[in-house]
Amino acid sequence: MLREYREAVLADEDRRSMDQARVLLAGSFCEQPPLGLLRTLERAGCYIVDDDFVQVHRWITGDVRADGADPLGDLVLAYLKQGIASPIRYIDEQVKGQALVERVERSGAEGVIFCAPSFCDPALLDQPMAVAAIERAGIPWTSFKYAGNTGQFQVIREQAGTFADSIKLWSE
């Protein structure tokens, strides 16, 4: 499917990037938010250049050791030591939010949208700490919650539109 997608993208000669704000979407790590929400954000003037959707599928960074004598042990170690920084993990001695700041830099995002499902404890309890780190780094951000079962995104559309405008017009 990926291959087909890649070919289709390359075949479309008419592709051009629009003038949109590059944003990182944080807080929807448990699942993929409704497609309508993503479409709304893009139409409101944002390009989502990084996200944490379905984070469990990309939990382990790098390769798990494949030539050790204790494969189970290696799997456990990879889980413990090579896991991504996420609100759902407790990491000793971490600088909260630092990993997010680094992702912003890597992806070239111009701002962060915290977009968590309502009542998502890990995302929402974590957010003030992530926001503090983002603010220390001077990165613009905004936040809202969504309900998984809704198709109504008018308020989000307005907020995302204002945010994209403020990045495009006033960010240094």
């Binding site: 609100p87 407790y90 404890d121 890990p122 309890l125 974590d126 700490m129 503090a132």
Partner: peptide, 27 residues
């Protein structure tokens, strides 16, 4: 002491940041 309540983790992460105090985790 993490006993079945995930909020505890975040609560003390938050306080750790507010007070700049060390956290000892008992899982």
């Amino acid at each position: 002491s993490y006993t079945g309540c995930f909020t505890f983790l975040k609560w003390f992460e938050l306080l750790g940041q507010e007070y700049n105090a060390p956290v000892a985790m008992l899982h």
